[in-house]
Simulated scan of single mutants.
Amino acid sequence: MTLATLAEVLQPALKGRYAVAGLVTLGWEDMRAFVAAAEAEGCPVILQAGPSCRAHTPLPILGKMFRHLAENASVPVVAHLDHGYTMQECREALDSGFSSLMFDGSRKSLTQNIDETAEIAAMAHAAGISCEGEIGFVGYANGENSAGTDPDDAAKFAVETGVDAMAISVGNVHLQQDKEGGLDIARIRAIEAVTRVPLVIHGGSGVPVAQRSALARGSNICKFNIGTELRMAFGDALRAAVNSDPSRFDRVTILKETHDPMVAATRRVLRAFMAE
């Protein structure tokens, strides 16, 4: 069994100067490919159930899927709740077998965010699992604007919540389809100067690959969330499978053809985060 907590994969990454990919899942086909890619590269992987995934599949089912993959994998696999917005949601994930909870209180006041994140971190730690929090709001492409992380707020948040990982807003944006942006290195360095908690970048698909690698190997960013990039790869593979034979209708046959392209795309993502 290789089910791991977030702390168990991020602390070695912090010391070893590499990062671990938090891969946003939507269904069995992509999560199975993500684990296969991690096994091929010999690295840990974080399977993430975000809001859109949970809207499609109930948390208790996702927990069983993640744990089944972890228990049969040759590398550490984290079963991670991504963007949990309430105590109830986080507790349900814990009860469903998740090994890591991410509580997102980034839209709340600093005081409320700290208080609620600390409560969820305490619940997670009492159960022997990990907790990620977010300080500073990471916006959305063609949607809500970001509010950058203040380093002093980050220092206070890290100490008072006791989180195992801290998501920060430093120029990253969710759902970005191109890689033309870049992260605010000066802000990252200022945050690193006041805390040793492993840092997390949400919206990693929009970060240029060269910058991902440089930060994985030369900063305290130990986790990059990748969603849009791999969803696009899955869409391309599915479209090719459907169009190759318009008379086919068996979805099992069609979906099977997405596996190898998804493994290949995921391996490329994972390699960028490895130590030199």
Rank of each mutant, 00 (worst) to 15 (best):
Phe273Ala: 08
Phe157Asp: 13
Ser99Pro: 03
Gln112Val: 14
Asn243Phe: 02
Asp104Asn: 05
Val45Tyr: 02
Ala93Gln: 12
Gly218Phe: 00
Leu230Lys: 12
Pro51Met: 00
Lys256His: 01
Glu71Ala: 03
Thr111Gly: 11
Gly97Ser: 10
Arg239Cys: 05
Val159Phe: 03
Lys15His: 05
Glu92Asn: 07
Asp178His: 10
Asp250Arg: 12
Leu69His: 03
Asp178Phe: 01
Met87Tyr: 14
Asp30Gly: 02
Asn225Ser: 06
Gly235Arg: 15
Phe249Ala: 15
Leu94Met: 15
Ile226His: 09
Thr2Tyr: 09
Val263Pro: 14
Ala264Phe: 01
Val269Glu: 15
Ile188Leu: 08
Lys156Cys: 10
Arg267His: 04
Glu144Pro: 00
Ser244His: 04
Arg17Ala: 14
Val242Gly: 06
Ala93Val: 04
Thr258Phe: 01
Ser247Asp: 13
Glu71Lys: 02
Thr228Trp: 03
Glu160Gln: 15
Cys131Ile: 04
Ala265Thr: 12
Leu175Ala: 15
Arg91Tyr: 00
Ala233Leu: 13
Ile188His: 07
Gly84Phe: 01
Val78Ala: 04
Gly136Gln: 06
Glu92Asp: 10
Ser96Glu: 12
Pro198Cys: 07
Ala19Trp: 03
Arg91Ile: 09
Ala241His: 06
Arg187Glu: 03
Thr117Ala: 07
Phe34Met: 15
Trp28Gly: 02
Glu71Phe: 00
Gly42Leu: 02
Gln11Ala: 06
Val194Asp: 10
Leu10Val: 15
Ile46Lys: 06
Lys108Cys: 14
His202Ser: 06
Phe98Lys: 14
Ala210Cys: 00
Ala124Arg: 05
Ser99His: 05
Leu81Cys: 07
Gly16Trp: 04
Tyr18Thr: 09
Pro60Gly: 10
Ser100Gly: 05
His125Cys: 08
Ala7Trp: 02
Leu69Met: 10
Gly128Cys: 09
Leu94Trp: 02
Ser52Phe: 00
Asn142Trp: 00
Asp150Gln: 08
